[in-house]
Amino acid sequence: MILASLKEVEFGYNDAPSLHNATIEVRSREFAAVTGPNGASKTTLLKLMLGLLKPWKGKTFLAGKREDGRPLKVSYVPQQIAAFNGGFPSNVQEFVLSGCLSSGSWLRRVTKEDRELAEKSLRQVGMWQLRERRIGELSGGQKQRICIARALAQRPDLLVMDEPTTGMDEASRKGFYELMRHMVDAHGMSIVMVTHGLEECRPYLDRIIELERKGEGGWKCCTTTLCSGHFSPAR
């Protein structure tokens, strides 16, 4: 099933288009990476896909429902969350728990399952130990991890992340790619992430969306579907 797509999309911030004739598809149960040099409109591509930006030309599509007819849950982890200043009065656990509560009624009570899911997500990103910390006191890499934990706690069908491994060391990056692969294989999640470390994560991917320079007319998409079986630690 196609969860999101762009068809012959053109977009720019000024008079000239920065993204030209972009066509991509994101299918269910796949792990895709968007890559390209700095300024290649990778973040723009994600925002167009999520409906946060409107294209000049072409069509964008984001599925409203899953295959079983239930509403599609989408989570987004942006590159920077501006409100993460030192004074924000919230601790790590409260922040991640808010991810569990983002679906369903706005007034529903916090359940035991919500708390367990928040704990599991924090353990998955190795941040459970710092659960009582004020979020503004965390380092950049730690903030990135709790944003990923919050997104995982939402149990999304489609998880979109913008450079999620920024600030992570090599061991964490490997753990992160394995975790994402596990979410696709075991939980049927679809994942799209912007990355600069393509060679490192290639073994875990199903699809690569590469942005290439198209003369002076901006950037275009070049999609590669990886046919060979990806690395899976479960195998």
């Binding site: 353990r123 998955q124 990103v125 190795g126 941040m127 130990q129 710092l130 730690q142 991890r145 992570m168 060391d169 061991a171 964490s172 990056r173 490997k174 753990g175 992160f176 394995e178 975790l179 596990h182 630690p233 479960a234």
Partner: peptide, 8 residues
């Protein structure tokens, strides 16, 4: 003392 993201 928090560690890296745990490997599977």
């Amino acid at each position: 003392s928090y560690g890296p993201i745990p490997r599977l």
